[in-house]
Design a protein around this nucleic acid. Structure first.
Length: 558
RNA sequence: AGGGAUGUGGCCAAGUGGUAAGGCAUCUGGUUUUGAUCCAGUGUACCGCAGGUUCGAAUCCUGCCAUCCCUGCCA
């Protein structure tokens, strides 16, 4: 038994090493992290990695973690996203400290900080337009040159910046820039913009502001205001760290030894999918998928609808670890995580996805009989369920062949015996195909084999699943596969060209009667087929989404 | 000679001078009324390459190579 505050062993990583050192040296007494999404899209599994990291660290070290919306660009952001993000984080099993924070909560603070830099001669209002600014910046080989506005006196800059705030300038007419180093090898240090003018209604602050801070200015100050100790972000922000440090070092309130520090880890890349928000937006906007929660999407909401569980996603995050290496993670790791969880918790049931009829000609009763089958063969505590067996059954087309191809074939064939899962051993005698191509198999059953092996000692290795026809519930099965047909679609000139045309197959078949009451999102294992859950968007009829197939070592060797 | 990073088995990933953890995948057996699960076993890893320091190097030094990121008034 775990003691109340004992946490499970977690894999070590470089961030934990840093935290351990910071705690040991008393730099910090406790840790404080944050998850800082911009509300401009739905969260995806890459965000889940970051969420598990930030919230997981806070849990393990008994620190705190904020949810903070990085909402400094009203043109791109929307309330729809701030709501979906909160829903997704909580569904993943995490709770932020206090209320959700917003960068926009600190707009006045940012403004005062900008004034402080201006007064110190470290920021100026620049009237170069965007094109000119680009020219003045130089390039990777050549240093930039000073803006003609670079040496404006602080008092004048202060007045100008106040006018910016008051709306005296047009959008794009001027920006506030930091005065750093036009020759720096870090491009982000060549007098970066701190504030731009946008006459845009903000989803939190309305029309209170017409100037909005840039990410690099807002993020570090937000971290410092909240007392964040370890500010974790992805690799592409490594250069920006110099600006993060420059801002905090030059602000009196934040230039202290326990101020936040930024550390970068590599973002998640998953095979056969895309993770960039731009591409995800494109998939949704061009109707290449049903929406953000399409079960083929790598979004949290899509994976949830597909049948992924929070526990599996957390386990996945733990399995892939945290490092600074650019990597491409195989789907197999994700699938192993969801199979592990679902194998443990999913009730077993039978569903026939591509049905053909099987008639048991020697079955004597006109009415089907009831059989009690285990809900989970490895967990008796989950109890028993009622299934039916009778004269007419459905089995899967893939489980029957007129002629067995070889002696390794374990399914049903004419003249061959197989076990019907949870029921009797049967033998196929003959089959008929009608003019519509519908197959009916006729056979017999061995009445002495319910719950036991044949008394004569003959071995029947094959087991196939079935549903009794008169009680069967019609159901739709949505069989999902990878969204793309190449491992790294982002490398393609046009990723839409490599969409997998078979990423969704719809089948109509039958399930056990008890599943008529299946709750939405409840995971089931359709034995021998895979894990499914009832679709949460469908209100009429039974629709099951396939989360993942069972591991199949047989098909691979054929 | 722009700068910032990274290179450990097929894929992730520990390791921070003492002689290469773990997970996923693979393959092989065993159990099994899910060809699942479970159990046991399975890898000669030139630790990017080449030199050097050291009794000893994946770990330290030098040089080289490869890949990723940086020239938004995006984040």
């Amino acid at each position: 038994m775990n003691k109340p505050h004992e946490t499970p062993e977690r894999p070590v990583n470089f961030i934990r090493n840093i935290i351990n050192e910071d705690l040991a040296s008393q730099k910090h007494q406790t840790i404080y992290t944050r998850f800082p999404p911009e509300p401009n899209g739905y969260l995806h599994i890459g965000h889940a990695k970051s969420i598990c990291l930030n919230f997981g660290l806070a849990q393990d070290y008994q620190g705190r973690c904020n949810l903070r919306f990085d909402d400094t660009n009203p043109a791109k952001e929307d309330l729809e996203y701030v709501e979906s993000i909160q829903r997704d984080v909580q569904w993943l099993g995490f709770q932020w400290e206090g209320q959700p924070r917003y960068s926009s909560d600190y707009f006045e603070h940012f403004y005062q900080s900008a004034l402080e830099l201006i007064d110190k001669g470290l920021a100026y209002v620049c009237f170069l337009n965007a094109d000119e600014t680009r020219e003045y910046r130089g390039n990777l080989k050549e240093p930039g040159k000073a803006s003609p506005y670079r040496d404006t006196a602080p008092q004048e800059n202060r007045a100008l910046f106040e006018k910016m705030r008051a709306g005296a300038f047009k959008e794009g007419e001027c920006v506030l820039k930091a005065k750093i180093d036009m020759a720096s090898s870090f491009m982000c240090l060549r007098d970066p913009a701190l504030y731009r003018i946008r006459f845009e209604t903000h989803h939190q602050t309305g029309d209170a502001w017409c100037i909005y801070p840039m990410y690099d200015f807002a993020h570090c100050i937000s971290d410092a205001i909240e007392g964040i100790t370890h500010s974790l972000c992805t690799l592409e922000f490594q250069d920006n760290r110099r600006l993060y440090d420059w801002v905090l070092d030059n602000l009196a309130a934040f230039n202290r030894p326990d101020r936040p520090h930024q550390y970068e880890f590599s973002r998640l890349n998953l095979e056969y999918t895309v993770m960039s928000k731009r591409k995800l937006h494109q998939l949704v906007n061009e109707r290449l998928v049903e929406g953000w929660d399409d079960p083929r999407m790598p979004t949290i909401s899509g994976m949830r609808r597909r049948g992924y569980t929070p526990a599996a996603l957390r386990d996945f995050a733990e399995r892939i670890g945290i490092s600074k290496v650019d990597s491409m993670t195989e789907m197999g790791i994700l699938e192993a995580a969801i199979r592990d969880d679902l194998n443990r918790v999913a009730p077993r049931t039978m569903g026939v996805i591509d049905p053909i009829k099987l008639v048991i000609e020697n079955y004597p009763n006109p009415e089907p009989e009831v059989i009690f089958a285990p809900v989970h063969p490895q967990n008796e505590a989950m109890g028993k369920r009622e299934i039916f067996f009778g004269r007419e059954l459905y089995i899967d087309r893939a489980d029957f062949l007129e002629v067995a191809p070889d002696n390794k074939y374990q399914r049903l064939a004419i003249g061959k015996e197989a076990r019907l899962r949870n029921a009797y051993i049967i033998k196929a005698e003959r089959c008929e195909t009608d003019d519509q191509g519908r197959i009916t198999v006729y056979g017999s059953y061995d009445a002495a084999t319910l719950g036991k092996n044949p008394a004569d000692g003959r071995k029947v290795k094959g087991v196939i699943h079935f549903v009794e026809a008169s009680r069967a519930q019609a159901a739709e099965f949505r069989l999902y596969d990878r969204l793309f047909c190449v491992p790294n679609p982002s490398k393609e000139a046009d990723f839409a060209q490599v969409l997998n045309p078979n990423s969704l197959q719809v089948k109509h078949g039958f399930v056990e009667p008890a599943l008529a009451q299946a709750p939405v999102e409840q995971a089931y294992q359709f034995e021998r087929e895979g894990y499914f859950c009832r679709d949460s968007r469908t209100t009429d009829g039974l629709v099951f989404n396939r989360t993942v197939t069972l591991k199949d070592t047989w098909q691979q060797s054929v």
